[in-house]
Amino acid sequence: MTENPFDPIILSKISNMELRARLIVDGALSGIHKSPFRGSSIEFLEHKEYSPGDEIKHIDWKVYARTDKYYIKQFEEETNLKCYIFLDNSGSMGYKSTGMSKFEYASTLMASLAFLLLKQSDMVGFISFNDKVIKYIPPRSRITHLNVLLNALAELKPSGKSDVSNILNEFIEKIGRRSLIVVVSDFLDDTDKIIKQLKYFHFKRSEIILFHILDHYELTFPFEAITYFESMEDERRIIAEPKSIRSHYLNELNRYLEQFKQSCLENQIDYWLIDSSTPLDQALIKFLMRREGSQHSITKFFK
């Protein structure tokens, strides 16, 4: 049986985030059979050796003069989108049952999205946070910007308490109109406040996508033995017999998820609940295909 290379367990063995992102994006795009590239370039990007069929007007004669070889000038594609990716870096994101932690999963997903967007010459900004901003990288559209993002990701380790609404509040004024706001978090926070803050972005005609990353164990609570459950963000701990509380836990969780989802729907927020055990390519394909079939305006960013 062939192993799925996008399985989080397999991916967790690939330490190079860029390689992960490329692997996922290529796989995802080949899956939807759509070219991610479109539009014209206005800003020089790099040189490429000439090959028959290339337009002669793009031959850089200065380089020809120096090297006696034909090189074509390549230009940065035109972009008209600024995407801000908010990555939750709180302690709870460090939880993992098997394979990848939520943070690793979210990071990979974020990298994949960034790679996808940068390939489309969109601008990608990055904010990692817990209850405060840990890292902010302004949006850029160069493909090399990906390395900046990946380097930033590599430095991050989940810690601290999460406060999504506060961070969003900080960036309301900083982020311009018609932006794409992507929030990747486990949203183990006050969702009402989060929705309230996201509404402001919505007023600014920004598109909002929430990737709600939860671990499989968080979704199923499969524990058996009596356990001291300890918080990953503070000092709280509680002893519980999982068997006896499982059904109540799942009821609470599902009620919370349903409410959150409903709130997102009411506020035209694109909400994606992802189990961190789901192979990333599948999650991405599912997302892209939904977006493709959707009338939502953000769809174009991925075509």
Binding site: S92, A225, E230, I238, S244, E252
Partner: peptide, 28 residues
């Protein structure tokens, strides 16, 4: 011993356990 031996486990969605346990801890 079982109570003492109950192993610690860091869990992210602990708020739900707290919420649940509030109701059933007495019963438990």
């Amino acid at each position: 011993i079982n109570k003492k031996k109950a192993f610690s486990y860091k869990f992210a969605a602990i708020d739900f356990i707290f919420q649940t346990n509030k109701r059933i801890s007495v019963k438990f």
